Computed example of a mutant assay.
Amino acid sequence: MSRFKNIKKTFGKRIKRLKLLAFHSQQFSFKSNPKKRIIICFNGVVPHGGLVDRLKGIISFYDIAKILDYEFFIQFDTPFRLAVFLEPNQVQWQMNRAAIKYHPLKTKILYLVNDFECHPLQIIKDSKADTFLVYANIDYSNTLYPEWTTQEKEAHWRKNFNMVFKKSALLNSKLKAVENEKYIAFHTRFTSLMGDFKDTTALVLDGKQQNVLLEQLQQKIKPILEDTHYKCYAFSDSIRFLETIKQRESVYLVEGNPFHMDNFGGDTPIQGHLKTLLDFFMLSESESIYFLKCGKMYHSSFSKYAAIVGNIPFKMITD
């Protein structure tokens, strides 16, 4: 990374930390907490990432709270209330904004979005604060358990996820309304390449390149369909890809338009966010997941973590 980019990145982080300090100091209090606690926050003051990024941060800091025997809470009200779709299971984690107070000496704000280098457990252990307001979107399993195998880390992540969350009655009913038979799934991530999805990237392929990419993907999907007797569902961030592959091949789609969770409109109805949760748990409940990547397409952890939650086979198919 160039010196200019490093300076820009450092400056951006400082600005975000100042914004968070200004936001939380509005609820100033000198009251101490009887037990140390970690509160991971999703309030829209800064970008938080998509659904899976948010889940990574949540599970990482739940794990740290468990290790340290701290209380653990989630404040998630933007762009929707998390408990509408994912309710507390064995951990009573719900906390609203009004309950979060800022003590100038005993509250520490941790802005760790896209910070892959830090050791969050050590940061918290070394601090004298009793309340940690966390902004994070990273799975820190590799940092916390460097000697574990991939399978051990995934099993641990899944166990923690199921300790923290259970699907709400609303989400369960919507999932059952989509499909009751067994199915496989494939997933693609284009971000801005097809010109139909707003993300942090800006590259848009021209029409010819888009058509070539669609053809390449179709040729990778054909043998998957020929080799299974199950239904096949397609998941993607590109409406154009989904509509095209449905016209060309025998695949099924989940109704609704995909969009990034940080790029929501203030009037986005709850059904818009339901689509993201349906996609994730439809993937997690499939028989197997195929992640397809050709050319300039992007990697995605969305379907990979769905496979971890569902404990199902995951296969990446590339050029």
Rank of each mutant, 00 (worst) to 15 (best):
S141L: 03
T268R: 10
F291I: 11
Q75G: 02
P104R: 04
R158N: 09
Q94S: 07
R240I: 14
F28P: 00
I100A: 06
H156G: 01
M1Q: 08
E147H: 12
S127E: 05
I270R: 10
T276A: 14
A177D: 13
K5W: 09
S192Q: 08
G272I: 11
E243T: 13
A306V: 11
G50Q: 10
N137D: 12
L283N: 07
L278E: 06
L278H: 03
L193C: 08
L242Y: 03
G256Q: 09
I39A: 01
R97E: 15
V251C: 09
K36P: 11
F291T: 14
F76I: 06
L225D: 04
K231V: 04
Q219D: 12
G295I: 07
R37P: 01
G265A: 14
K304I: 10
R81E: 15
E249F: 12
Y135C: 00
G44Q: 02
Q75N: 14
P313R: 10
Q122D: 14
A155L: 14
N43C: 00
Q122W: 05
L203V: 13
Q271P: 00
S25D: 03
A65R: 00
E71S: 11
Y298G: 10
G195E: 04
V52D: 10
G44D: 01
F241V: 12
I59L: 13
F314G: 07
H273G: 15
G44N: 04
G50R: 05
M194H: 10
L21K: 05
D199Q: 10
T201N: 14
L274C: 07
F190N: 05
D262S: 08
D237R: 06
V84C: 07
P34D: 14
L51I: 08
K231C: 02
L51D: 08
I74V: 11
Y290L: 03
F30C: 10
C232M: 09
P269M: 09
Q92N: 14
N311M: 09
G295W: 03
G57H: 01
S238L: 08
R158C: 09
I38P: 02
R81C: 12
N43A: 00
G295P: 07
E285A: 12
I15V: 15
F291D: 14
L171N: 07
H260N: 13
K106G: 01
M1S: 15
V52I: 13
